[in-house]
């Protein structure tokens, strides 16, 4: 573990997985591993971020990502402020950048942004003085999700090299899929995508992945099965004809899972639509499902990300009076 105290990230922001090097990823995962152990211990509170302010700025509703960033910040001693779109003035016509200017004037150290539009975190990072963490921007990236997924996999499988990871579901609208494709490919995994044609983005094969529309073929010999959430508004005729047809062909049940490698792990970024993309019998089977473990890794991973970013924060205030 290289980065016990030294700098880990070249950038002062975490905007995506695309710009992360393999050594940065590995260092982050090592750091997160340490926080998993720490979180299991009795004394969890640390003082690394004492006196630092973390703002969670969420333009889309989120339960686990927001609470996990909040918990991560608090366990590291930061003051955490949650701002969600319902309580802000965005709905009164204020733009993202107006909000950014307002928040910037409050001099936070780290801003965590979830936004419905691709590129929102990158835009914000150009306009504020603090570190920005992308907690999901449109269908672009969700880097901490990919990191926590990688951590979950790494704790169960020692090596990514040659690992077959099948990502199945609404790839088109999924930032989780994009971040995982990029990050897991960098670590040496073979990534497969499986979805009906309506939910596959154009030229997805250019990511260097294999494309499937038949789930049985996509699952053959898979080590990891990563299911994606199908957004409710995209069912019922728009992208797929019905939820029951979707479940029949793309829902993960025991029958389909039987085609994967024996002992394959099942993952889901949550929240799940039971009976639509995943059958409860699979989701709740602790022999194969690591879905709850992903949530646990989420807190540790976000602590690691905040820790890494804090290392590049100036010790004295960056703001001049």
């Amino acid at each position: 573990m290289r980065g016990i105290d030294g700098p880990i990230l070249k950038s002062s922001h975490l905007l995506g997985t695309d710009s992360l090097s393999v050594s940065e990823i590995t260092d982050l995962l090592d750091l997160a591993d340490g926080y998993v152990a720490l979180n299991c211990a009795g004394e969890r509170k640390r003082s690394l971020l004492t006196g630092r302010t973390l703002i969670n700025l969420f333009f889309e509703p989120s339960t686990r990502t927001q609470s996990s960033f909040e918990l991560a910040g608090k366990r590291l001693g930061a003051d955490v402020l949650n701002m969600s779109v319902r309580t802000s003035s965005i709905s009164k016509g204020e733009t993202l950048l107006d909000t950014a200017a307002t928040l910037n004037a409050m001099r936070p150290d780290i801003l965590v942004l979830r936004h419905q539009d691709a590129g929102a975190a990158a835009l914000l990072s150009q306009k504020v003085d603090c570190s920005v963490v992308n907690a999901g921007d449109g269908a672009h990236e969700h880097p901490t999700q990919a990191l926590l997924d990688a951590l979950t996999i790494r704790r169960r499988r020692t090596n990514f090299e040659g690992l077959i990871v099948t990502i199945c579901g609404d790839i088109l609208h999924s930032r989780v899929a994009r971040s995982n494709i990029i990050l897991l490919s960098k670590l040496g995994a073979r990534v497969r995508l499986c979805a009906p044609r309506t939910l596959l983005p154009a030229e997805a094969e250019r990511f260097g992945v294999e494309i499937y529309t038949d789930m049985v073929e996509a699952l053959a010999d898979a080590d990891i099965v990563m299911m994606l959430r199908l957004q409710l508004e995209r069912m019922a005729g728009a992208f797929v004809p019905s939820t029951r047809e979707y479940f029949r062909f793309y829902g993960l049940d025991r029958d389909k899972l039987a085609y994967a490698k024996p002992g394959a792990l099942v993952m889901h970024p949550g929240p799940m639509n039971r009976g639509i993309e995943i059958d409860s019998a699979v989701a709740d089977d602790i022999e194969v499902s690591v879905i709850q473990e992903q949530v646990e890794m989420g807190v540790a991973t976000r602590m690691a990300v905040l820790d890494a970013l804090a290392r590049s924060l100036p010790r004295e205030g960056r703001y001049r009076p």
Binding site: A118, G119, G138, A139, R178, A202, E203, R206, F207
Partner: peptide, 12 residues
């Protein structure tokens, strides 16, 4: 629509 829009995650 194309590879670049897919990478950027922009509706295309």
């Amino acid at each position: 629509e194309g590879e670049f829009a897919t990478r950027l995650g922009i509706p295309a």
